[in-house]
Design a protein around this nucleic acid. Structure first.
Lengths: 238, 238
DNA sequence: TAGATTGTTAATCGATTAACAATC
DNA sequence: TAGATTGTTAATCGATTAACAATC
């Protein structure tokens, strides 16, 4: 594999916009939270829920929950509420969970291994088709039911299985070049765990899962509550 | 350890608010991103940066970057830009990275192990003081340089080291009860990796690191770009 | 029916962007 | 000096909340 460090001229950073008929990010984020809550309610044997219930659990205004449902195309009935089966079906659709999503995982260090082994993703239709690593000493190891492959094999697997999603759990220093390379091979979505702002062409979707950033935010809030100590402080949501 | 499933009456969900002199969440999020970028620039030998540079990398308006700097108390100089050393010092302060932050980690499954082993957190002042698990078969194992302790030992360690941060990498089903228990023992900040909306008292800060949610968002955007295929589509930021 | 709950329009709030003056 | 870049005020945009009518 020859990784070229290309110029960044034609690439743009991943950014929030909302062209097309897409749902805005704040709404989408809440829909995913609703989804988890509703699913749990279903497991508990209920078959309807109200905007007020969601609102209480998420500490938001009930109107907002109703607006979100409307945005998702879930219609409720006055006095009754929303049907769980209805909502789950719609949200499955919107969150893209109804179809199977194949992905490859690059970089099988601790985090990569954890993700490969995480059972929760199956529920979201994510199937890890193969795991790769540049480090040849790792090739051949078993990680979460997969044998680690050399990254050279990546191209053929991408094309054979028409995979569009790559999970990047590599060191920050090489994330950009691997990203470039993957994009060149047709990857359309990158789930990036490296603490770097990847620069990608506009047709590629990046979701940054920047753990260090999350940590910084948590610490900031902690300090703030300590120093002010107003008992009305509320912590930050994800 | 006796975990009681308490009522949720007095607890509220973690939510975005902005009482006190705190910095609003969107700003804080960008500050953490700037921090990473600026740090890297420093390593490359530069000693100033401009709002335009940040803006280009993050695909935002330069004005926004300047406003953020102002909010962080970083002052620049016309024609020169901002001093990296200045900005790093201020951001260290605001993000709470200048002081050491001790934490305990509960639940040493795959994800817990990955986090325990992740070297990047040291940079953010995070020190994992101890690792606990309810599962006694895991107690005594070595994980990332720590010996897993039985959760019964948790209380004494919390009070001896005056630890306020807990990292929760336990199954969703037990996250709420463990959270309740930790809060009762004086924990003030929870970094929650379980896909559950924890209900906590208002003085406790929760940061949800909901991986399945991130995945759902990525998939949603991917589907959207595919179906619309307008080349102006931009992916979502974290 | 009466009351609960949705759906929607208008008002508010906060975050982003535009415009431009200040200044190194 | 002239030009680049910050800092700030005003304008815009989008998201949230309030109010209330529709309806099961």
């Amino acid at each position: 594999m020859t990784i070229r460090r290309t110029g960044r001229d034609e690439r743009s950073a991943q950014v929030e916009t909302n062209g097309g008929a897409g749902i805005s990010r704040p709404i989408l984020e809440r829909l995913a939270l609703y989804y988890q809550i509703i699913l749990r309610m279903g497991e508990e044997g209920r078959d309807t829920f109200s905007s007020a219930q969601l609102a209480t659990l998420l500490q938001i205004d009930p109107t907002l929950a109703r607006k979100d449902m409307a945005a998702a195309g879930v219609v409720g009935r006055p006095k009754v509420g929303y049907l769980i089966s209805d909502a789950v079906a719609r949200l499955d659709e919107i969150l893209g969970l109804s179809s199977r999503n194949d992905a490859i995982l690059i970089g099988c260090g601790h985090l990569g291994g954890a993700i490969a082994a995480y059972p929760g993703f199956a529920q979201y239709g994510l199937k890890i088709a193969a795991i790769f690593d540049i480090d040849h000493s790792r090739v051949g190891q078993r990680v979460g039911g997969h044998v680690v492959l050399p990254i050279e094999k990546c191209k053929s697997i991408l094309s054979i299985f028409r995979i569009q999603i790559a999970i990047l759990t590599v060191p920050a220093a090489v994330a950009q070049e691997i990203s470039d390379w993957l994009v060149g091979k047709g990857v359309r979505a990158i789930w990036n765990f490296a603490p770097v702002q990847l620069q990608v062409p506009s047709h590629v979707v990046v979701r940054n899962e920047n753990l260090a950033l999350g940590l910084a935010q948590l610490i900031h809030h902690l300090k703030r509550v300590k120093s002010h100590d107003t008992s009305s402080e509320q912590p930050s949501n994800n």
